[in-house]
Amino acid sequence: MDTSLLSAAIVGGVLNGSLYALLGLAIVLIFRTTTVANFAQGEMAMFSVFILIMFADSLPLPLWGQWFVTVLVSAVAGALVYIVLLRPNPQAEHLNLTVRTLGLYTLIYAVSVYFWGANEPYTVPSLFGDGTIAIGGFHISYDQLGTILVTVVLGALFLLFFQLTQLGLAMRAVAINPEVAGLLGVNVAKITLMVWFIAGAIGAVVGLLVAPVSFLDTLLMRPYILKAFTAAILGGLYSFPGVIAGGLVLGLAESFASIWISIHLREPFTFAILLIALLLRPGGLFGRVHKVRV
């Protein structure tokens, strides 16, 4: 195979993979601490980008400052989602809580279409500017390089935060067993609030990275959310390194699939990977099967 095609496939795969992984981290974070599968994670990210181009870009700030404001507002919105949507009636089974996020998915989409129209593309400025850089045989655009750098830094920070800080430790405790964590003096409600805050922020970053490349419209995150879930499942659902690996595997696999098979069959191919992987390893590629005690 031609090396430039190969390098393009690798760059494209890592790029998409890192975005799946980052969005997947937010999903796994929420799932581990609250057993809620947040189906609205992608729509929350889409909404964040609208926050940027509708409000934050009128602020007298440089673009990175507007980014920062957007991420902060999205994080607060994430925390609000928890308070308004998931706190009421908390004794409901986790399926009910997950269905509420499906409702939120419907709501955010409806609200966005109402304000900004369906299928109306908006251009979003890129933080990294135009141009490409050649490293060896690889041609990488500034956008691609910037995106990969941001996701790597953010992913690393995330893992370090969880391993090293007090708050990260408390979150891990809540993730393992909320009741026991509560008895040990961890404020579970506060931790859960923080979790949604962080998930809101991560979603915003992913949205802001995706939008400049692919134009913003109300369907912006639809392809990404399913891939992020797939990455999470491939990673075993409970593991942060797992979801990162899952995202990269998925990104590279579909990138090569679109070269070798057909670009139109990229999506079915993704599903085939998921199904085969789970057929061979029901606990995910990198996870263990969690046994329930009798």
Partner: peptide, 22 residues
């Protein structure tokens, strides 16, 4: 899919619908 539970099963079946659409 029946080897999976809850959330994993939900995503796999969701991906199935998504795949047929494509």
């Amino acid at each position: 899919a029946m080897r999976l539970r809850l959330f994993s099963l939900a995503i796999v079946t969701f991906a199935f619908g998504f795949m047929l659409f494509h």
